[in-house]
């Protein structure tokens, strides 16, 4: 038996989830500390949402240990849910009620007194910039507004732990930045954030620590910077070539520069040279007489780490 780290918001040991014969989560260990912003990254089908549902105490654990705020979801489901906020992947707003009613009724489900919920609803509407939409029906809101309303709703019980499943998927850049800004503020106020995303910039922006999941397992763990340092190089030199002819690849080109980089990745239209100093590598490439149609030197990102760990194959 594993004991929870003292004060751990989420403690999972060898956590598993199966649906019939399919194992969606195949034994993961996670500890989320108070006040941190923790991310689950992974392609579709990696087991992120299954994990989140177990943590939200709405999906029974199939195996291993799970403690949320020190409690067992199997026996203390309602008590756990009273203290956490959940922002699900799809907006599950009550379409038969107005914006204001959505928040008010939801707040009352948490056993909070009417007067306090009323006060809280006003604060939250302000917080997500929906005050002037209070009387609108949910269906009349834009996608970004619905998302903000869902986030507001997840805060109505002043949660200690906020779970966000792909908080900005499907939003335009403006709406994404508004959501990020609100999440930053919550973090500053000491709320522990746990989010899933497949936007790497979102993970870099928001999380202190993250795990990369693939096929139900954790394949890497650390801060965004540490992960980049561990699984990629400091910089990437991109060499763009015309798309390789039918049946051919840029494999021969890659071999001619293989010694210039720690690792070379071959794509149909370009070579990626993972290297410590991109400019220097680029100069050497030109010395060898290669003539790419375009070049780019950039810092390694979490996306490079992600693709390295989970592959470029399309996952559905």
């Amino acid at each position: 038996m594993t004991l929870s780290e003292p004060g751990s918001m989420i403690h999972a040991a060898d956590l598993r989830k199966s649906f019939g014969g399919f194992e969606a989560v195949r034994g993961i260990d996670v500890d989320v500390r108070p006040g941190e912003a923790f991310g689950f990254l992974g392609p579709n089908g990696a087991g992120k949402s299954s994990t989140m549902r177990m943590v939200a105490a709405v999906s029974p654990v199939s195996g291993g240990t799970l403690r949320i705020l020190g409690m067992d979801p199997a026996t203390d489901g309602p008590a756990i849910r009273a203290r956490i906020g959940v922002c699900p992947q799809e907006d599950t707003l009550d379409t038969e009620l107005t914006v204001w009613e959505n928040l008010f009724v939801y707040g009352r489900y948490f056993g909070l007194p009417k007067a306090e919920v009323r006060e809280k609803v006003e604060e939250l509407l302000e917080f997500v910039q929906l005050t002037d939409k209070a009387k609108a029906m949910v269906d009349d809101l834009s996608g970004g507004m619905k998302r903000r309303l869902t986030i507001a709703r997840s805060l109505v019980n002043s949660p200690e732990l906020l779970l966000l499943d792909e908080p900005t998927t499907g939003l335009d850049p403006q709406a994404r930045h508004v959501v990020w800004d609100r999440l930053f503020r919550l973090k500053q106020q000491g709320v522990t954030l746990v989010l899933t995303t497949h936007y790497m910039d979102e993970a870099e922006q928001l999380t202190d620590r993250l795990v990369v999941m693939d096929k139900g397992l954790i394949v890497a763990e650390g801060s965004p910077l540490a992960l980049i340092a561990e699984h990629s190089t400091r910089e990437v030199a991109e060499l763009r070539f015309p798309v390789a002819a039918e049946g051919g690849t840029h494999e021969p080109l890659a071999e001619s520069v293989a010694d210039l980089a720690e690792r070379v990745e071959v794509l149909p239209d370009r070579l990626l040279l993972y290297t410590h100093d991109g400019e220097e590598t680029m100069a050497k490439v030109h010395e060898r007489g290669l003539e790419p149609i375009a070049t780019l030197v950039r810092r390694s990102t979490l996306e490079d780490v992600f693709l390295r760990l989970t592959g470029r194959t399309l996952v559905d």
């Binding site: 009550d94 009724v105 489900y109 056993g111 909070l112 604060e123 002043s158 919550l186």
Partner: peptide, 26 residues
């Protein structure tokens, strides 16, 4: 907007009667 707001009630589980009342209200 979150955590430790002085003088505020904390969220809790509901009794059967309260829960039914809230669903009726909704």
């Amino acid at each position: 907007v979150t955590i430790a707001e002085v003088g505020r009630s904390t969220a809790r589980s509901l009794s059967a009667g309260e829960a039914t009342g809230l669903l009726l209200y909704r």
